[in-house]
Design a binder for these strands. Structure first.
Lengths: 186, 186
DNA sequence: AAAAGACAACTAACTAGTTACTTGCTTTAG
DNA sequence: CTAAAGCAAGTAACTAGTTAGTTGTCTTTT
């Protein structure tokens, strides 16, 4: 095997992503990551520092890449919700990583995410001023509810998952339609 | 009963609830629970078995108690959402426990929760048949979206929490109003 | 072109500390 | 006295992080 540090880093990142998504930070084992990545444990520490820092690297690499992957159009929030839904379907680990991040890093404030949020809130406010969006809710209120609806199907309790879920297309339709009702002028 | 084992059990349960809510199953430390409960570690194992079983006991004791704490009225889903919101405000640990449960126990299916869900779905179906509830969504779809909206404010990312949140009363109003729009006949 | 040197990639084995869980004994109430 | 409650002191296994050394590759010198 030729030596390729870049490839090794990538393998470690991939393995770490799967491990952290499955077990969270506290539950993940560095040895398991090393095994899965076919890399030596010491390399993980050399390339990424501590376990926590490895999580940060994974989170930044995967989640931040998707923050702006979904196009945001304040005048079409149903469409935004639908595209968010699609992303959660395509990359199921992303939401799990985000949830672990929320639970295990309650004080972690990534500048890129903060900036992305601010931009979205500003766009909503602008759309409201232009009369293209309901003013029944503040920008933060809108973003909060739209996001909640977009990930509603992916935050099911294990028990609700027992009930037969509608088709993916129908779930998406429900999300989009719910947001449409939320933002429609009265 | 010599000495008060019931009180000791209760102290352990309380301490375990706080610990699990804060750190999850993998991140929790039995020693910390014992210290916080002013109880000996061996008693934890004597009364509750393993750490996993202790989590189950906490989850059953706290969360199951609240499953039917909130009165469910299929003809007044906005009211149900509001009352759910109130519960999340009153007992912030409950939602965290539930989230850890979802992440760390993806296969855990508690009969009491399943039964409670089934009952709610049946009530929704009945209300729909009686023409008292929109039929634009299936019972599962309605329950999913209503729940997502009810906990929308409590699933904020750390980054969104930086933005000044509206007053509790206003958040509640937003939840109730969102559900009202969701279920209104068109 | 070949040998020597430099350096980065990589590794096995280890350390120091932690953690879930147990055992054997003491204390207390009835 | 007895039975249950309670505890100090363990133990075996695990785990994050380190160390000292090896291997492969590229560059420089002759």
């Amino acid at each position: 095997m030729a030596r390729d540090s870049e490839a090794t880093r990538a393998r470690i990142l991939d393995a770490a992503e799967a491990e952290f998504a499955a077990y969270g930070i506290a539950g993940s084992r560095v040895d398991r990551i090393a095994d899965a990545a076919l890399a030596n444990k010491a390399l993980i520490y050399k390339y990424f520092g501590t376990k926590d820092e490895l999580f940060d690297a994974v989170f930044a690499h995967r989640v931040l890449a998707f923050v702006d992957e979904v196009e945001f159009d304040a005048t079409d929030l149903p469409g935004y919700a639908g595209r968010s839904f699609d992303l959660y379907e395509r990359f199921p680990t992303t939401l799990r990583l985000t949830t672990w991040y929320q639970l295990e890093r309650p004080d972690g404030k990534l500048p890129a995410i903060v900036a992305s949020n601010d931009a979205k809130l500003a766009k909503i406010e602008e759309a409201q001023r232009a009369g293209k969006l309901t003013t029944a809710y503040s920008p933060l209120e809108l973003l909060t509810e739209v996001r909640a609806l977009a990930m509603s199907w992916h935050l099911h309790t294990p028990e609700l998952a027992l009930v037969r879920r509608p088709s993916r297309a129908r779930c998406r339709e429900v999300v989009v339609e719910s947001v449409r009702r939320l933002v429609e002028h009265d």
